[in-house]
Amino acid sequence: MTSELLGRTLVEEATKKSGLIWAGSPGAPARALWHVWYEGAACVVGDGPGEQPLPSLTDGANVEVTVRSKDKGGRLVTWTARVVELASGSEAWEAAVAELKGKRLNAPDGEAMVERWGRECRVVRLEPVGSTVPLPDGDLAAAPLPTPATTRRPVPAAVPRLLFKRRGRRG
């Protein structure tokens, strides 16, 4: 009981303080999302023009949420969440949107964004279920994909002579 309570407290405090979480279905790549912690869940808005995509957040699904440290950027905690899509215009939707609109930066339509969210976007709650997921032991960094854009080729032999040749002095 105590470890479960500590786990929930860790999830809440870490998620409140972090401005960014990663959420995704197990086995699928996680997506970075801005969010607001409100009434025991992380609330996100997206899937509309100019908003973040929410590809794996379908109503009723379980997703893994990873929270990073705001100052160091490292992984703090990973937890399982149940996705609950809020109906546009409902009391829960209005309350969540009131919190989200204060955190939305650089909205193209200013105060009209709430109406746009109601018409064109989804507002989703990520509610913690169960306990936290153990942190992995190994390094999770993936090697970058090979690309010719990052390959440096040798400088042609004539370039230094062209760049650094002495110009004749005019007198």
Rank of each mutant, 00 (worst) to 15 (best):
M1I: 14
T2P: 05
S3N: 11
L6D: 12
G7M: 05
R8G: 04
T9M: 14
L10F: 04
E12T: 11
A14N: 04
K17Q: 11
L20W: 11
P26Q: 13
G27Y: 11
A28K: 08
P29K: 13
P29R: 11
A32S: 12
A32R: 14
A32L: 14
A32C: 13
W34L: 14
H35F: 09
Y38W: 15
G40I: 08
A41E: 07
D47W: 03
D47I: 04
D47A: 12
G50D: 09
Q52H: 06
L54M: 10
P55F: 15
G60F: 14
A61E: 09
A61W: 01
A61F: 05
V65L: 02
V67C: 03
R68W: 13
S69P: 01
K72Y: 06
G73R: 09
G74N: 10
T78V: 15
T80F: 03
T80S: 07
R82M: 03
R82W: 05
V83T: 06
L86P: 00
L86Y: 07
L86G: 00
A87E: 08
G89E: 07
S90W: 08
E94S: 10
A95K: 10
A96K: 04
V97N: 00
A98C: 05
L100F: 02
K101P: 00
P108C: 13
G110H: 07
E111S: 09
E111Q: 06
A112L: 09
A112W: 04
A112I: 06
V114Q: 01
V114K: 00
R116G: 00
W117D: 00
G118Q: 12
C121Q: 03
V124T: 11
R125P: 00
L126D: 03
L126Y: 06
P128R: 04
G130S: 07
T132F: 03
V133D: 00
V133N: 03
P134R: 09
G138M: 03
G138Q: 01
L140W: 05
A141Q: 05
A141T: 06
A142G: 05
T147M: 12
T147Y: 09
P148W: 06
T151Q: 08
V155D: 10
A158C: 12
P160Q: 15
L163Y: 11
G168W: 14
G168V: 15
